[in-house]
Every structure is written in C-alpha cells, then in structure tokens.
Design a protein around this nucleic acid. Structure first.
Lengths: 125, 125
DNA sequence: CACGTATATGCTATATAGGGTATATAAAGG
DNA sequence: CCTTTATATACCCTATATAGCATATACGTG
C-alpha cells in the first residue's frame, strides 16, 4: 500500500480528504459528518497520515487533522502527461472514429475495422 | 472495482496507460515493451476497457488499443477541489507550522501543540 | 483518583484482486 | 485443413486490505 494511488482508491479516505478540504476537523467531527464508526475513521486517518496526505496536531484529547498538499500534487503531476494527450486530440479524431458506430457495439466490445490486407505478420526474430 | 481510482491503483495498469499516451499499441507490443506476461496484459486491458480508459479495434489477429480521455478527466475533476486548496494556502501557513519542528518528529507522529486551556468539551447534544 | 470523553490499536474473519498456468478462440496462410 | 500467430479466458491459489468488535491509552475534571 505504498503508492498515493492506492491510498486514494478507498472511498472513505477520499471522503475524508474532501471533507478536510474546507477546513481542519477533529476525529469526532469526521466521525459524525461522514457517519462512519470511530475506529474506521482512525484507521483511515492513520493511512492518510503516514502517506503524507494529512497531518495532525494534538489539542487536549482531540486530534485535529488537516490536509497536506504534497501527495495530491504528486497525483496531479502524473495526470499531466495525459492532459497533453487530450489537449492534442481535441477529440476531433476520437469523435470521428466513435461516432459512426457508437451504441452499435460500444467500445467494450472490440470494434471490427475494415483494413486492406496486412503485409503478412513478420516472424518475430 | 467500480471507481476510476481503483482502476489506476494498479501499477501495471498505470504503466499501460502511460505507454499508450504516446501512441496506440497492440497487445503484443505492450507485452514486449512492459515485459509482462500476455495474460496479465490482456486482463488489465480488459479492466481498462470496461472502465472506459481505453478502446480497441480489431486488425486481423491483432487488437490495437488506444487511450480514451473520459475517465482520466474524471480524476482530474476530482483533483480540482484540492487545487483550489493548495492555491489558497500558498503554503505560507503550512511551512510556518511545519518548519519549526520538521524531522523532530515528522508529521506521522502527532504534533503536540501548546494551547490555552480549552473551554471544556461540551457534552455532545 | 475515579470517571467521562476522545482517539488509537489489536484481533479475527472475510472478500477479492492479482499472478501463474493451461487452454480456448480466431484469423491467415500455405 | 493444419499450423502458426495473436489474444482472450477459465481456474486455482495466495496475499492483503477492510470491516467489526473489543480494548487500550491519554487527557481533563470534579
């Protein structure tokens, strides 16, 4: 469970992150707002903390958690390569290819394409 | 395994996506470039296809896979809320709080903070 | 110091994703 | 047709993340 992507794969954790984006919250507040059992909250917070998504400060018996930007920026950085992609393909080509037979068989079913005879698959070394 | 986040949690799948960002590839090409067993490639491609990350067209015996932007944009959209966050906190406050005792105990260990006596925890409802 | 509140942690059970291997399907070509 | 190439799938196995519950720890207060 090392990568940032595995961390945010969990719905409850994403919920916690989204909650913290507005302002810092104590465990109890998270517990009540998200209606999840306290041990669950604590465990997910632990994962988030160790991954650097959040940090906490102690205030009497309460632990107040707040967001940290590092790991989220990391995800953002990974996405960058794809932004370049969908910027290029301003969807012009995509639409062209899909449109003609969308719903016909969708894209979960491989799309049969008509092609000029292939140059016979070369034996691979 | 419904959410887009769970899909990209898998390292091999992220590798495939990153490979496809340059150009479309057949299963065999992916197999060789990423050095992973063919059934593994096919299985991950299936997951990616059903989640809408990629689409495929048939070309003789080959299946050519290419990237689709939808789900990636969805992730990007989720990240938006946090971009607003880390834009606000231009890290000014953050650095201030961390700096003083970074490495001291890191942020995986809750940071003890000095506080003026709290107004006594109100009984909850 | 006994008690209530707040949070963390230990333990067990369970589901499920992913790897490996073998095999099915399908298309081309001789 | 029989073989080769290309990809998909079925099956089994294992590892591990998460939920649920109980309990420990810690702090503050009367």
């Amino acid at each position: 469970m090392e990568s940032v992507f595995e961390i945010i794969a969990e719905p409850n954790r994403r919920a916690i992150l989204s909650l913290l984006v507005s302002s810092e919250q104590s465990v109890g507040e998270i517990e009540r707002r998200l209606r999840m059992p306290q041990p669950t909250v604590s465990k997910h917070l632990r994962v988030l903390r160790e991954a650097g998504f959040v940090e906490s400060t102690v205030d009497a018996q309460r632990r107040v958690y707040r967001l940290k930007s590092g790991p989220l920026k990391e995800i953002d950085a990974w996405l960058a390569q794809f932004r370049r992609f969908w910027a290029a393909h301003v969807d012009a080509l995509e639409r062209h290819l899909d449109r003609m037979d969308r719903e016909q068989h969708g894209s979960s079913t491989p799309t049969k394409i008509n092609r000029k005879k292939m140059p016979r698959p070369k034996p691979r070394r």
